[in-house]
Design a binder for these strands. Structure first.
Lengths: 229, 229
DNA sequence: TGTACATCAGTGAACGCGCGTTCACTGATGTAC
DNA sequence: TGTACATCAGTGAACGCGCGTTCACTGATGTAC
């Protein structure tokens, strides 16, 4: 009987994440209308993808986390797939932000910016490996003919490297160089989060690897341009 | 009635793959003992992973393909996971074969061998992208503390690049160079099968990209070694 | 300010489904006598 | 060569489960008068 009066919000759902809370100071009691269920479900999906990976994501789990019935999502989303696509898209958005930030911090068009950009890319992957994997998995791709999620992100990387190449004067094949650097950074991210380096070269210094390879590719391209001239 | 006598092997299971067939010339009729169900199930799992991806693999599907009840696998495997692990391991075995073959074809210790090895790596990934993805996914990793599946494959790549570095004389940091090249080739494979290049640089020439980057990294490392000397 | 009403975000129960795994069993095969 | 028996790879039915999605509903909210 005592327990009845002392516990108004039922603590059934684990790790429940409520949406907008109108009266933060008051005892939080579940309201019929959620406030912003759409965002809450996206957040829940993001959280679960980060925790368990996209291939184990379950719509029912997301509902549990958001504290809502399993039918509720269909008022906001087409189906489970749409939520996974949105989380993928947001992942790329955040990654782009990180990359742009790194460039701005180091001055666009500089060699330092390129390295920083690569480091941001890798850091993102290693911070949330499951999300990173989801972003590049077929599950994250939009079923409709929408603009593909990573496009803006990739284009940002390429554009910045091209800018540097142009500045420094190895304009020939600037795009090819950009693709090379991007490829390297992506490979680094994948092998790192898959634990592949640990298996075979446990002593590898990732930071060093990144800067050495960046230098190697940039110098290589510069030399090739010189040879051509 | 006519159909009864003319169709002894029931054609219920789609794409059924029978195991060892004792009398190839005779009308194939299902026997109680399969012959080599273990291999047949591994083959079926491989086929399904290739077709639909590891995250959509279903033990029941594999049984259907092998033409066997859903309880049968438990006479040969611990559980579903074990089959997925074996297919992952076999994938790495075949990849290693391809890589070793490419090296032998070009002469171990040569620059051509390194490029060919990279090309074999990428070709493997693009030929069976779903398997490649499965091999690097957490699902493929053994739950037991077994030797990790990609270890031999990676070690082969690294060793061959080290051999070349030693031969040519850029012995300093040979291992670091090996890791760089491997990283690049892996990134290339991933971005290629994810369709990332198409999105952002649809005109990219993969073969050219591979040889240019290989050259760049090798030259970069050689130059660094020279500078140090 | 009060009342009637339309809206629509949420409920909760149900659906059909197919999964992974277990169980007692059955029948083909190999071996010992 | 024939028979009795142990083995064990397969069966088929069942289990408990949790999923994604649909449905008629309900009740909070905003608006028109």
């Amino acid at each position: 009987l005592a327990s009845l009066s002392s516990a108004p919000p039922p603590a059934d759902a684990p790790e429940r994440v409520d949406g907008a809370d109108a009266h933060p100071g008051f005892a939080r009691r579940p309201r019929y209308h959620h406030g912003d269920l759409r965002e809450a479900l996206i957040t829940a999906t993001h959280q679960l993808v980060v925790e368990r990976g996209g291939e184990h994501f379950t719509l029912a789990d997301a509902c549990r986390v958001a504290g809502v019935s399993t039918a509720a999502p269909y008022k906001h989303f087409r189906d489970k797939q749409e939520l996974l696509e949105i989380v993928c898209q947001r992942g790329f958005d955040r990654m782009t932000e990180k990359i742009v930030g790194a460039v701005q911090l180091n001055g666009s068009g500089t060699r330092a910016a390129i390295e920083a950009m690569g480091r941001a890319y890798v850091t993102f992957a290693r911070t949330e490996p499951a999300l990173f994997r989801h972003m590049f998995s077929p599950q994250g791709e939009p079923s409709a003919g929408d603009d593909l999620p990573g496009k803006v992100c990739f284009a940002t990387v390429i554009a910045e490297i091209e800018r540097y190449s142009a500045t420094v004067g190895i304009a020939t094949d600037a795009r090819a160089l950009a693709v090379q650097l991007w490829t390297f950074v992506h490979g680094l991210s994948c092998l790192l989060i898959d634990g592949a380096y640990e298996k075979v070269a446990p002593d590898v210094d990732i930071d060093h690897l990144l800067s050495v390879a960046t230098a190697g590719l940039l110098d290589g391209a510069a030399q090739a341009a010189t040879r051509r001239a």
